[in-house]
Design a protein around this nucleic acid. Structure first.
Length: 110
DNA sequence: TGCGTGACCACGG
DNA sequence: CCCGTGGCCACGC
């Protein structure tokens, strides 16, 4: 697949994340078959603002940390959006991460 | 062309 | 949990 498709695929998967759930950059990368290129998923999310309906706030790092919050309109926006969906965030980290975690590998593999 | 940087991650200690 | 190391690769200078 070329880069264009890679980016589009990242956004497509992101759009499939259910409300109130979160996933990680690495999980998306693994689902797309580029497990070792999680950084590229992060780069794709950086550009996500240019595309409609891409819930970048539901994508955090593998620890549940809101590492990308500084790339939103305001640093607090990411947390606010998550809490608005019922996900509690404390000290820049998603609580009960394992419970809210949505793994495309398992959820979409059906 | 090369180098530093980064919304990452696995692994070892 | 923290820390360092190596791999990944687009982008800007």
């Amino acid at each position: 697949m070329d880069q264009q498709n890679f980016f589009q695929n990242v956004y497509d998967v992101a759009r499939l994340i259910p409300k109130g759930r979160v996933t990680s950059y690495g999980a998306i990368a693994a689902y797309l078959g580029v497990k070792s290129s999680a950084r590229m998923v992060g780069w794709a999310m950086n550009q996500a603002g240019a595309y409609p309906d891409v819930p970048a706030h539901r994508v955090v790092n593998h620890q549940g940390l809101l590492t990308g919050k500084h790339h939103f309109a305001t640093p607090s926006l990411m947390q606010e959006l998550l809490e608005a969906e019922g996900i509690s965030v404390r000290n820049n980290k998603v609580q009960q991460f394992q419970v809210h975690f949505w793994d495309p590998m398992k959820e979409l593999e059906l």
